[in-house]
Design a protein around this nucleic acid. Structure first.
Lengths: 368, 368
DNA sequence: TTGTATGCGTTATCAC
DNA sequence: GTGATAACGCATACAA
């Protein structure tokens, strides 16, 4: 049988394109076929079952055969095919992660947190960027689901308003967890920051320091994160009897220094100069600092940043700054732990979805 | 046959742990089994082969059956199993990436570049962090190789001195590409920055501005990146007739602001005060700025940074700065393109390894 | 144009 | 303890 003979020479990879040659059994081919348990079995005159068991250190295999198998396996440079194992085990030991973008500290930190936990538990991580596109997000989710990942962690894109793709995953029985950019309507595990509280605290703090005209420079309010912070900001003002002034509120479509530079300049030149600024993310804070420098005005004495609190960026920039620290790495860790628990739950009853809300810390750095 | 009957109820996932119940054919189970081409075939009274071909839009299938198959597939919520396909095709359409750490701009930018190119070509990306550990790097490479990834991109950990794991991959016929943190000894595709030239240029620039005592604050010289920059630095001094002073050279074990703060302070207080600083990465530059502030001295008028050139971080910090821009995103893109070419090469002859050396740009920002 | 049979590499089931 | 053999879900050579 051709197939039978060919097997001994077939390289087993589309990397080697000379299939025609192989079909003609051109033995001069230098390609190597990959070693399988079948090969080991043949060499030892045992069954593949025995080899499989021996390699997995099953208790029902005699020590001698075990050793023999392992010895030959090493000699032949055997490597188990994880895909084949996944197929039969119905678990790939892979977590899928979807974030808006990977090259922004907050998200890469989260991923790092996810990866660190996953790796310890023997899981791999597959990463995708939605690039803030709903379309792409849906596409990615489909790929992940079809790849038999054991669980999917998602931070929604800015565009995402429809959650059918998530419902779909649930229907297919695939564990999903939303983190940071979430939605309310779906009963599902979530990990978020308590942005409302964080914003409130930070604005309270500014007010305590005697500030009255506190500007708000934030991202698109369509994102729950941003909206929550906005509400926290407003709530603090109300509770402290400070009139809310729409002119002090700036909603940016993107998180870029450029935009915040423009925003702050406009704010300032409009005669509405604030005495403090509450802004999202250090990236925006840098913009504010830059703009104030450029305008030749003193850097706002009280600048509050609600970001992930990467001190490295802001620490040496402004002497007096208050940060609402969003522990992105920890959020990632928490998210991974939670979904792994869901994946490996042992209960007989329905899994209970949990929403973990991380309370951001307030880091106050006084000018010296 | 039990197995036969069970199939209709078997959910097909270890996510559902109630296997005992299933074995007893407890039909009350709410779990859904996943739909396969077999199910579609049964429903339509055709063979699985036909379904398979129809779904893949094969030209040898009549339009009617195609449409019928697709219709039923949708109705039954069929989703192809990518793992099974990979097993047969011997290609998972996945690229593996190993970086020292993901939550550092340079690496996350690179990954972003890789991911963006890969995604466009229908490839997924699997990411791992070696955490600068050789041990972990080897472990990861083994996992990736056994997962049938189509190619592996690696940036070595700081510890990595032995390259057997890479040789191993080559032996197994798995395309590998080294980027940024590479080694010379292996004939293999590589993408690096021309750090020697970059450093030389940047130091030349400082010298042109009249600087004579140029400090060097860099990472561990065991890394080729760092060594190359050091050599470039030295080369520039020599060519410009400026004596090399070992006291002005500081080798840090890690890239942290803290360490560079200490380094700069020591440098300054030792009476060896430089008139310019050439330092790696903006993260170190921030340290230098912080230290100079703290010491109450003027920020070095000429601070040169050899980093990935994330302007956001340094732009608003120092008015006068020179950056050796390391286009990390582009390096990632280039790396992905290169390995994809290797994976999909059509030639019959041996693939030719290519070393792409990205020339860093010099970005000079004058104080206004 | 479609069906049959076989295989991808592994593990699970049931014999012995 | 070990061996046959059937899965896993899909794709393809060969037949019809």
């Amino acid at each position: 049988m051709l197939a039978e003979i060919a097997h001994d020479f077939y390289v087993g990879s589309n990397r080697f394109k000379n299939e025609k040659i192989l079909k003609h059994l051109n033995v001069t081919s230098t390609m190597k076929k990959s070693i399988t348990i079948k090969d080991i079995a043949k060499k030892l005159n045992v069954s593949t079952a025995t080899v499989s068991r021996a390699l997995r250190n099953s208790s029902e295999i005699s020590k001698e055969t075990k050793l023999a198998v392992i010895k030959i396996a090493k000699e032949m440079h055997y490597h188990p095919n994880l895909l084949a194992r996944s197929l039969i085990k119905k678990s790939s030991k892979v977590l899928g992660v979807v974030v808006p973008t990977i090259n922004r500290q907050f998200w890469s930190n989260s991923i790092s947190g996810i990866e660190s936990v996953a790796y310890k538990k023997g899981y791999k991580v597959m990463i995708f960027q939605s690039a803030e596109s709903y379309q792409k997000e849906v596409e990615i989710v489909e790929i992940l689901a079809n790849s038999m990942v054991d669980g999917i962690l998602i931070a929604f894109s800015k565009e995402t308003q429809n959650y059918d793709h998530i419902e779909d995953l649930k229907e297919r029985g695939i564990p999903v967890l939303l983190f940071e950019r979430v939605c309310d309507s779906i009963p599902i595990s979530k990990v978020t920051t308590d942005d409302f509280l964080g914003a409130k605290r930070i604005v309270n703090h500014l007010i305590e320091r005697g500030k009255k005209r506190i500007a708000f420079i934030g991202g698109p309010l369509s994102l729950t994160v941003c909206m929550d912070r906005f509400l926290g900001y407003k709530s603090s003002l109300v509770e402290n009897g400070i009139p809310f002034d729409q002119n002090l509120v700036i909603e940016l479509s993107e998180f870029t220094t450029e935009l915040s530079v423009i925003a702050f300049k406009n704010l300032w030149s409009s005669g509405e100069s604030p005495d403090a600024v509450f802004c999202f993310a250090d990236i925006l804070a840098l913009g504010v600092l830059a703009a104030s420098k450029e305008l030749g005005i003193k850097v706002p004495e009280d600048l509050a940043i609600a970001g992930f609190g990467n001190d490295d960026i802001t620490k040496y920039v402004s002497p007096s700054i208050t940060t609402m620290s969003q522990p992105s790495f920890e959020i990632g860790q928490l998210a991974a732990k939670l979904i792994l628990k869901e994946i490996n739950f042992e209960e007989k009853d329905e899994f209970e979805y949990k929403t973990e809300i991380v309370k951001p810390d307030l880091i106050v750095r006084e000018s010296t």
